[in-house]
Design a binder for these strands. Structure first.
Length: 731
RNA sequence: GGACGCUUAGUUUAGUGGUAGAACGUCGCAUUCACAUUGCGAAGAUCGCAGGUUCGAUCCCUGCAGCGUCCACCA
């Protein structure tokens, strides 16, 4: 293969050949790099793309900047590792496969858990590697030989160990949490699995002591433990913090005198209340509404469950017990009318959440979940500081630097107000909890003190409780983020951890700063005793040209491969970096075209330089400044080199690229190349001018290589006497 | 509802306490000599609005308006 300068640069032809060359050279793997002994490593953890993901411009942003750093530091002689992998993305993947099944007229229940999971693995085998293959087209120099999937056996073992570790440290506990429940499918549903149906219901205005409350669900009133108002609402200010004895409907369906009321209601002020809705005050039923559950959590309101798993009123509902919630509603409304507590009702259109599978109305009910303690407050037995405090500390002490700086605020406020992390999920695809229950000692809900389960990696041969049953594993799986939080070390082999942990950097979009970055930080501290990386780079969101969000469903998403195909990977990378200068990016195809023009310029300038210097015997003659033009270009080169390095090291990639663009195009091509034409005609200046041309071009290619690696490598191969690859050339 | 951000030439944007740089586009000129995916040159910005701080603000503060993103959610 050699470059054909008689034709315009054709990225399509060369890019895949060059990429093969790099892969074959093994230089993506830090263990193969010709680095000096004792030289430092530079490690980047790739944001794990979901196996269900399709490539979008955001991925190009996520990955182009680390690639620049990796290539730069590789050329600077560091041992560079860029660790790639994919995430099993629990709910998202399960959802995709279930949709596939639906087309065949089946549900996951038809297959059963085991066969369903097999089916997901099949799906993963077929599509799971696709996104990484697409990423390679952008020219990323990640070490693919180390690629891991968050459900690989070795990775899974670490995930299970982590769970057991937390359990032993008394940082995991079981508790109730209100979840979306389908009474027909008998399963909890994630947000993804909800569908919304527009419906007409009634909004009932119920008298509640000094309040009138609007609700669509009067049947949950027996589970009410609070009334919430907006903190800045002057109407209700006087009641906030008071516990009220309220004249209300009794479970016998009659009027309850205030004195007889057992469960009094606390008035709380909460930001979640919409002052404009209804009367501006709402009843709080933590057991049967997700928002109310959050409010209850914030104000320590008790949880009173009045509807059961089958969607029927339970014994707490007195004479209404056993009735379906819907029927109970009618009856209760009647009774409220009779006792004079119903002020009015009006029709109300709202979105009703239904099960995506069977269409049944979902019923929020409390269910047992596993929680990971985030904070030392609340009697953590781990002594010292909790996970959140430690993650906060390293950022406050600047051991971990979040850039741009203002995202530090987001991070700090999230961790400062954090609640314990619900790590269990009621789906099938994921890391199943290493929790084993005794079949003979079943309890609805068991806290530690009256255990009927053990937490161990392998199923115990003999049940420690009844000594005779075949223990049953908890059907729950872990939240996907629980496993991806371990990525900086679970992604590495035990051997690698000694060499490549801690790493240096992650680069991702802002929406996963808390979901992922924060959790990697505290997991790293907990399990490795060290921060996983010093730098968190948050890049802007890629928007459409008119400033709208890119989304697949709106048809505004953009596949960067379209540009790779049309203009080349270099031009695409150029466009991404060129535009990623400030905040969010309004993606403009014009930038890709500018990138292609630039690569074309480089191509032609290189052709000129290589032709002009063909007769130069010594491949690397020392250039000297003999003319004004010589002095100028050599000086400017030094300045550009210095600035480019400075900008790359401080993550100002766009600035670096603009500087390089300016230098190459305007200083080198427009000025020096033109001047060189005359100088070469002068025999006295000829040799030296040739030497300068070659030298400037070579140095330019090096500086440009991290940004536009393909074309620079292609041209470098044409250099007289170049034996090695540009990718490992000294910067 | 919460958090964060944006508002600078036709468009996309950079930037600084002393009235602004660029890219694309537009217009004019040039060009057999690396490149028309070119070169040279020109026009084009009261730096969202209203106050304030300051000798002086596009840059700092306050308010307003518009736009957007993320998170939470619609009782």
């Amino acid at each position: 293969m050699s470059a054909d300068f008689s034709k315009p640069y054709d990225p399509k032809q060369t890019e895949s050949e060059i990429y093969d060359l790099w892969e074959k050279s093994g230089c993506f793997n830090p263990d193969n790099l010709p680095v000096k002994k004792g030289s430092k490593s530079f490690v980047v953890y790739m944001p794990l793309p979901n196996v269900t993901g399709t490539l979008h411009v955001g991925h190009a942003l996520d990955n182009t900047t680390p690639d620049i750093l990796i290539r730069y530091y590789r050329m600077k002689g560091k041992r560079t590792l860029w660790l790639p992998g994919t995430d099993h993305a629990g709910i998202a993947t399960q959802y995709v496969v279930e949709k596939q099944l639906k087309k065949e007229g089946k549900t996951r229940f038809d297959l059963g858990r085991e066969r369903f999971i097999e089916r997901v693995w099949e799906w993963k085998k077929e599509y799971g590697g696709k996104i990484l293959e697409q990423l390679k087209k952008l020219g990323l120099s990640a070490d693919w030989s180390r690629t891991r999937f968050t459900m690989d056996n070795v990775y899974a073992a670490d995930v299970i160990d982590a769970f057991i570790h937390y359990y032993k440290k008394n940082m995991l506990y079981r508790g109730l949490r209100t979840v979306n429940w389908c009474p027909r499918c008998q399963t909890s549903l994630s947000d993804l699995e909800l569908e919304y149906k527009e419906g007409q219901t009634m909004l009932y205005y119920i008298k509640y002591g000094p309040f009138t409350l609007a609700t669509t669900r009067p049947e949950t009133k027996f589970g009410d433990t609070g009334i919430a108002v907006h903190p800045r609402d002057p109407k209700y200010k006087q009641y906030v913090g008071k516990e009220l004895e309220i004249e209300s409907l009794s479970v016998e369906g009659s009027l309850d005198a205030p004195a007889k009321k057992k469960n009094n209601i606390t008035v709380v002020a909460d930001e979640a209340v919409d002052r404009e809705f209804g009367t501006g005050a709402v009843k709080v039923t933590p057991a049967h509404d997700l928002t109310d559950f959050e409010i209850g959590n914030r104000h320590n309101l008790p949880l009173v469950q009045v509807i059961d798993e089958r969607g029927r009123m339970n014994e707490k509902a007195g004479k209404y017990a056993g009735m379906k919630a819907e029927d109970a509603r009618k009856k209760i409304v009647e009774d409220l009318k009779t006792v004079g507590l119903l002020e009015k009702d009006e029709p109300y259109a709202h979105n009703l959440a239904v099960c995506y599978r069977c269409g049944h109305a979902i019923e929020p009910i409390p269910s047992t979940q596993w929680f990971l303690k985030m904070s030392s407050g609340g009697g953590s037995a781990s002594g010292g500081e909790g996970l959140a405090e430690r993650a906060l500390d390293v950022v406050k002490k600047k051991k971990v630097i979040i850039q741009p700086k203002n995202f530090e605020k987001t991070y700090v406020s999230w961790l400062s107000n954090i609640r314990d992390w619900t790590v269990s999920r009621q789906i099938w695809w994921g890391h199943q909890l290493p929790v084993w229950f005794c079949k003979n000692k079943k309890e609805e809900f068991s806290k530690r003190e009256k255990e009927n389960f053990v937490v161990v990696a392998e199923k115990p041969k003999v049940c420690p409780f009844c000594k005779e049953c075949d223990m049953e594993q908890s059907p729950d799986v872990l939240d996907t983020w629980f496993s991806s939080a371990l990525w900086p070390f679970a992604g590495l082999s035990k051997e690698d951890r000694k060499k490549y942990y801690p790493g240096n950097l992650v680069s991702n979009a802002r929406e996963i700063l808390n979901l992922w970055d924060a959790r990697m930080i505290f997991s790293g501290l907990e399990f490795m005793g060290k921060i996983p990386f010093q730098n968190v780079l948050i890049h802007g969101t890629v928007l459409t040209k008119d400033g709208k969000r890119m989304s697949k469903s709106l048809g505004t998403g953009i596949d960067p491969l379209k540009y790779v195909d049309e203009y080349g990977a270099d031009a695409t990378r150029f466009a991404v970096i060129w535009q990623a200068s400030g905040q969010d990016i309004r993606w403009d195809e014009a930038a890709v075209i500018a990138g292609r023009k630039f690569t074309n310029k480089i191509w032609n300038a290189s052709r000129f330089v290589l032709e002009q210097t063909k007769d130069l015997k010594s491949p690397n003659p020392k250039p000297v400044a003999k003319t004004k033009a010589d002095t100028k270009i050599l000086k400017t080169l030094e300045k550009t080199k210095k600035n480019t390095g400075k900008y790359i090291e401080s993550f100002q990639f766009s600035r670096a690229l603009h500087e390089l663009y300016d230098f190459f195009w305007h200083e080198f091509c427009d000025r020096y190349l033109e001047a060189s034409k005359k100088q070469i005609e002068n025999e006295k200046l000829k040799r030296n001018t040739q030497a300068i041309l070659l030298y400037i071009l070579k140095e330019s290619l090096k500086m440009l290589h991290p940004f536009i690696p393909f074309i620079t490598e292609t041209i470098y191969r044409e250099f007289p006497g170049s034996s090695s690859l540009l990718i490992i050339e000294k910067w």
